[in-house]
Design a protein around this nucleic acid. Structure first.
Lengths: 344, 344
DNA sequence: ATTAGCACTCTCGCATTGAGAGTGCTAAAA
DNA sequence: TTTTAGCACTCTCAATGCGAGAGTGCTAAT
């Protein structure tokens, strides 16, 4: 039933590769001419018929060539494509760029999005690394004016959170510094979750601070760290499937709306292991918004410690080999960088 | 020559308003029927001829209605539109939303972009507030592992910059804290520029820190603070002028590429006063990328202290009244919020 | 199992046509 | 002098028809 002969696999792979390149339906004559097949076009036609019956190909109209179906792409990605890797010198060039920008997470993210967009020729998406385990590292309280206090909290991995705090009454900088020293001593290295249940002696000021830390800075469900980085959006619109504006708009909504992204990521890549690359082809029946798009996604970082997401979005007729190898490589690179930053 | 009779102004305004609403060329019959003009269509035609000769209108083809030229829009914005304001209850609703999110700059920016996009029905653009005068407020040095040190620098206005620093040899946290205390005492409230020329006694560690502060954290020419916030991109693609993908792609490139944005903003809105709203119609002969777009831009903040940019981008056939009043209002609101944050 | 041959179907590009919209002009009216 | 009715004119747009070309599926022969 679902097993294909070797020749059928070959024909299917050729059709899909050709269509990914040209965006034109592929006919039997075209195949034998361009790929030196030593079988006739009639034989190819017979194979095309069975591949069509099995649901891997379809015809836009009675007499056009064949076009892959979504199932066809899925079969291609899983069974036919094989494992692809970026060329070594490309890898080195990219890695070099990352090490050149130093330890600046913001620029890592921008660079990752840029590399993904250029290498995969699709729209890139990168979310900032997010510590899953929030380890208290250092607290600073700075009086600004009146009752306003700026709280700066440094977490494990160098993540910095800041928050304004309005106290009930003005407090001197000396008093704030003393509180910070005490809190730093008490909570050094602790998980933010366990700070909430801390039961030691505290006066009102310190309890206020603790409340602020645990309530406002601790959102375990919030998957898109702070920022979402995008690149290559205008580039991907050049693909012919986005000539229809409605298709383009639906695709852009996915990248633009945080709520959509959050839903999408929480139900896909979050359930996968780090290192694994997920491929969503044509919405997979679940995602109305990306009915006409495919995405290649991966988590990076260290599970349980700090993670983020990288991915690309393009038309269903996407160069999956390029995209998958690029996403896998960039995710690995970011994992190294981010884990390195967190190790101490 | 360039003076128009009152009736000509009326006709021009009606044509432009109608065209902005419908995106359809406007004919003489349509005008008299829909706007209760007590002159005949032949008279309107005569006025249309003179408005066309003066360069404010044009005909897509011999026998279509009239469409505004870029000069027509400019005349409309400057002379005919009058001063527009958002309705008071809309203003209150928006202001309320801002005060609800507390003192979180990141969320202010996201909200500003969202409000701009929804109110103006165009694509919104907001740059984070950037301190023009970088005042040293508080420095924290935290040993992470080995020779790696995380430096956290708090500036006036609560802006936090962080940077990793690799020392020549490992230094204890006690030594780092002592250095931080000394630097804090010396530089409290000083401008980052004048720290570079500080000539007091310093040992090697402290001089390293100073070098890092002044070299890596002080980029006076960098106009797009850190982040650029966008919203309403997929929404604005629904405008009929973006049905042509090439037009849409050129527009998106402006929003996407930092270098283009930087060039654009540095040569327009930076030369204007805060509070003034700038309107760029159809590239103004200078900007190839936005030949088919218009932008409404404004600076917010306090000049010399902290500023940022807000704006919208849409087709040349843009609802200028809505856009200008929205941009003006949001800029004012952000100015209040940001200046408030900086005052102390 | 493969292939040559062939009729068939469907799209695409091109030219033609007619309806409709809106104009500009002219001459008459105010 | 300004306004207006009347009208011929021009141009777009949608619909139609037609021929070429591409690619198929089927059949019969290898």
């Amino acid at each position: 039933m679902s097993t294909l002969s070797e020749r059928q696999k070959l024909v299917l792979a050729l059709v899909i590769r050709d269509y990914i390149d040209t965006a034109q339906p592929v006919g039997s004559n075209h195949l034998v001419e361009h790929y030196n097949l030593d079988i006739s076009s009639a034989t190819v036609r017979n194979e095309l018929v069975t591949l069509t019956e099995k649901g891997y190909l379809r015809q836009p109209h009675t007499s056009a060539g064949r076009v892959p179906t979504e199932d066809g792409y899925r079969y291609f990605v899983r069974q036919l494509m094989g494992h692809t890797e970026l060329p070594d010198n490309t890898k080195r060039t990219i890695a070099h760029q990352f090490y050149q920008v130093g330890h600046d997470v913001d620029r890592w993210m921008r660079l990752a999005a840029s590399v993904l967009a250029h290498q995969s020729q699709a729209a890139a998406l990168v979310t900032a690394p997010r510590a899953e385990q929030l380890r208290f590292k250092h607290l600073e309280l700075i009086s600004t004016h009146g009752r306003q206090v700026l709280m700066v909290l440094v977490l494990g991995g160098g993540e910095v959170r800041q928050q304004m705090l309005a106290l009930a009454e003005p407090v001197s900088q000396e008093r704030l510094s003393a509180a910070a020293i005490q809190l730093n001593a008490n909570f050094q290295g602790m998980d933010l979750g366990s700070i909430a249940t801390y039961s030691g002696q505290m006066d009102a000021l310190e309890q206020d601070i603790i409340k602020l830390i645990t309530e406002d800075l601790h959102h375990p469900g919030d998957i898109l760290g702070g920022e979402v980085y995008r690149d290559g959006i205008s580039q991907v619109l050049a693909e012919p499937e986005f000539a229809e504006v409605d298709v383009a708009r639906k695709a852009l909504r996915i990248l633009e709306e945080r709520s959509l992204l959050e839903d999408l990521l929480s139900r896909t890549v979050l359930t996968a292991s780090v290192g694994g690359v997920q491929v969503l082809i044509g919405g997979e029946g679940t995602w109305e918004e990306l009915r006409d798009c495919s995405m290649v996604l991966a988590r990076y970082g260290a599970p349980g410690l700090v993670t983020g997401t990288v991915g690309v979005l393009g038309p269903i007729r996407m160069a999956y080999g390029r995209s998958i190898s690029t996403v896998r490589f960039v995710a690995g690179l970011l994992s190294d960088l981010v884990v390195d930053l967190h190790a101490e």
